[in-house]
Write a protein that binds this DNA or RNA. Structure first.
Lengths: 241, 241
DNA sequence: CGGGAAGTTGAAGAGCGTCAAAAGTAGTGG
DNA sequence: CCACTACTTTTGACGCTCTTCAACTTCCCG
């Protein structure tokens, strides 16, 4: 972990939410400045090291979380240990939505990460007073659902190369939406995480990336950075071969 | 199509929603009887034959739909025609939720089906007056999201046998929730639909079912009915080999 | 500089897909 | 009522993609 990331931005005492870097990306952006104190009273900041656990599948779903910094992965396990990562979350993303009695998945920090924790019941009460916030939360669930359906298409019907190309383009798109560079993506997760996200093995991910590098589509840099050298070709790969 | 199913229950003139068979299963159940007329004014009934199109991916998402009878499938396509079915809907299920600019998926009737169509904007207005309805809609989206994640686990990490066993058990569970028999499921969809739902081919689905039949786990009846002869064994298969 | 994890590369094999054909089922019209 | 046709499902043989198992290399972090 680089020394410069030691202190991540997360709610501080006093006026936690107003200065939150992730505020506008998240549900919190639906509230006016005047209403922020009501939100701030509910919030409990959480700071996790890599591999730190946020929630475990099946636990009582008493809280909702909002990622403010870093990357978090959501995953489900089979009894024999096979794992499917259902999503990677970044600043502004919510987790804990999909829940009946207990959480539908486990969540764990990929990088050092900061989150805000909301007691579900108290947040529900706030949502009843703040329709805009409920609408925003609903819209986020809607987007997550659309992303899940896209991922089902990937898992069920795409080849390893298509999956990998889609993954890289998805990473780049997310980074761009958060204001980062568009053609050099930061790959924070391990090959094993990528494999479990794409329904492949680490070996296949590695081989596929190597082949793409050999074909001049990407460049693999140190520190897990990947340059998308030929976006058009990758986009072609992502959908048809 | 059997003669007895010629006339499916769907909203008639006068008091369409009050007598709707799917009402309590759906968002509409969140409204009191007195508020039903407000809902009924928005509603437009839709009656589809098998293979009839409800929506097409990318179309402007102007409407929300509620299935009242029959089975509807949701799917996404790749340019070369590969298809992933993301879900099968029955009475009470909503569709048209996942939408940015346009619909995120296409939807088509599997059996003869009846739906209610709501203009999105006018329904949104009603939701603002009826918080209970918005909560219900949100809960439905939440459940759909949990189901999507379960399906990602299936698509990414389960074998053909596990997928097929999970599918049969899922069908039985749905049927039971709607009050049907628990161990003889009505399989309304074709092998091709099942394959596109499980990320397999029709041949593999057929072979797997045949093998299960040979192993005494299921019995294949006429008219697409399947008897789950050994539920415990199927449940074992569904999660671990 | 050293130890351990993460990543890459190689060889062999399995599971599922592809292609092809037969068997079963349903709808149509004489 | 039954033959004809078209589609769906099943069954078979073969091949390919991806997994599995294993060894080697690189990258961190102490």
């Amino acid at each position: 972990m680089p020394r410069t990331e030691r202190h991540l931005p997360h709610p501080a005492l006093g006026d936690p939410c107003l200065g939150c870097a992730a505020r506008l990306l998240s549900v919190c952006g639906a509230l006016a400045d005047d209403d922020m104190p009501a939100l701030a009273r509910l919030v409990e900041p959480l700071h996790l090291q890599p591999r730190g656990t946020v929630i475990a599948e099946g636990e009582p779903a008493d809280h909702l979380f909002n990622v403010t910094a870093g990357t978090v992965k959501l995953y489900k396990l089979l009894p024999d240990g096979r794992r499917q990562i259902t999503g990677f979350l970044g600043p502004g993303d919510m987790l804990g939505l999909a829940a009946g009695t207990g959480y539908a998945y486990s969540a764990e920090a990929v990088t050092e990460a900061a989150l805000c924790r909301f007691p579900r019941l108290r947040l529900e009460a706030l949502l009843d007073e703040q329709p805009a916030m409920r609408r925003r939360l609903f819209a986020m669930a809607r987007d997550e659902l659309a992303a899940a359906q896209e991922q089902m298409l990937l898992l069920g019907r795409k080849t390893a190369r298509e999956k990998t190309a889609s993954f890289l383009l998805g990473l780049a798109e997310r980074a761009a939406r958060r204001g980062g560079p568009a053609d050099a993506v930061e790959v924070a997760m391990s090959r094993a995480d990528i494999a479990d996200y794409l329904g492949l093995t680490t070996e296949t991910v590695s081989r596929t990336l190597t082949a793409m590098k050999a074909a001049g589509l990407i460049r693999l840099l140190a520190g897990g950075r990947i340059v998308l050298a030929d976006r058009a070709a990758l986009a072609g790969l992502a959908q048809a071969g």
